[in-house]
């Protein structure tokens, strides 16, 4: 008994303290929809990667089935207008959607975060100029910007990403600017400044890590927005060009045949909807996990 009592005494008396990230992970795990979404998105990524090496048929092979034919054992999701396998094209379309969604957010982060940090930290002229440019970009319809850019640059996957970034960078910049404006007045930043830390160190060593939660959430919401925008551009025929399939162009192709071959529209539309929902649920979950005060 004495030994036991001694052991109790030597235990740390401070309460168990979790890090921000483990705490967020704990909260995220409690969010069932976010977890299901994460599992779906993980599967989607795996399938998209596997599709680089193997699909049931070549996505560009015409006449593998009777054009417009519905789902069958040989073609699980049926065939399209040229008798191409819809499932194979859907899988390759997933690659396009993920590349566009993730690629766009990487670029948005690369552009939006530094500009937002600088505008928020230095305020004054830099902030005025950045705010003015943001307002100008918000004033121009994003579809118009994208269409003009694609007209000038040509409709390729890279250019679609550039066009979407050109219409989406402002959200991230504005968020980071706002976070920076708030954080720069906090005591720990004052302390860093007083201890002689250089602006670059303050921006990327102190402010950015503390703004990371909202940034991650914003980026997560940005992915489905970019995927939807790409699908819309492809639906209009100015997005990803044939023979590369995109969920948007597949839905567009299927629209003319919706009364005899609804699977041509349903398959890409359902895939698109599920993916958008998954990203949005995950984004919601991350927001709640990283910033519990925002939870209603």
């Amino acid at each position: 008994m004495a030994a036991t009592a001694a052991a109790v005494v030597t235990r740390p008396i401070a309460p168990e303290q979790a890090s921000l990230w483990s705490d967020a992970w704990r909260r995220l795990r409690r969010n069932r929809m976010a977890l299901i979404s994460a599992v779906y998105l993980t599967l989607l990524v795996v399938v998209a990667i596997v599709a680089i090496f193997k699909t049931p048929y070549s996505y560009r092979a015409v006449g593998v089935a009777l054009p417009y034919s519905g789902p069958s054992a040989a073609n699980w999701l049926g065939a399209d207008i040229l008798g191409r396998d819809v499932l194979s094209r859907l899988l390759v379309g997933a690659q396009i959607s993920l590349i566009v969604g993730v690629g766009t957010q990487v670029l948005v982060l690369a552009v939006g975060v530094p500009i937002g940090l600088i505008a928020g930290y230095y305020k004054g002229v830099a902030d005025s100029v950045v705010s003015f440019i943001i307002n100008v970009f918000y004033g121009i319809p994003d579809l118009l910007v994208a269409m003009i850019l694609l007209l000038l640059l040509g409709p390729s996957l890279n250019n679609i990403i550039i066009a979407i970034v050109a219409t989406r960078w402002m959200d991230m910049t504005r968020l980071v600017r706002g976070q920076t404006l708030a954080l720069r007045e906090r005591e720990f930043i004052e302390a860093a400044r007083a201890s002689g830390a250089k602006p670059l160190k303050i921006l990327f060593g102190h402010i950015l890590p503390n703004a990371l939660g909202p940034i991650i959430v914003q980026a997560t919401f940005g992915v489905p927005a970019a995927i939807l925008f790409e699908a819309f551009l492809s639906f209009l025929g100015i997005g990803v060009q044939p023979p590369t399939p995109s969920w948007g162009s597949m839905a567009s192709d299927g629209l003319a045949a919706i009364r005899i071959a609804p699977h041509m529209v349903l398959a890409p539309s359902i895939a698109l909807s599920l993916t958008l929902m998954a990203f949005n649920f995950l984004g919601d979950g991350l927001r709640d996990a990283l910033d519990p005060r925002s939870r209603r």
């Binding site: 092979a61 015409v62 040229l82 060009q241 044939p242 023979p243």
Partner: peptide, 20 residues
């Protein structure tokens, strides 16, 4: 569809990628 078919044929039978 004719354009996409031609694109597919030139790719499969000639190995030439033609944009449409």
């Amino acid at each position: 569809p004719t354009a996409e078919f031609l694109q597919s044929q030139w790719h499969d039978n000639l190995g030439v990628d033609v944009a449409i």
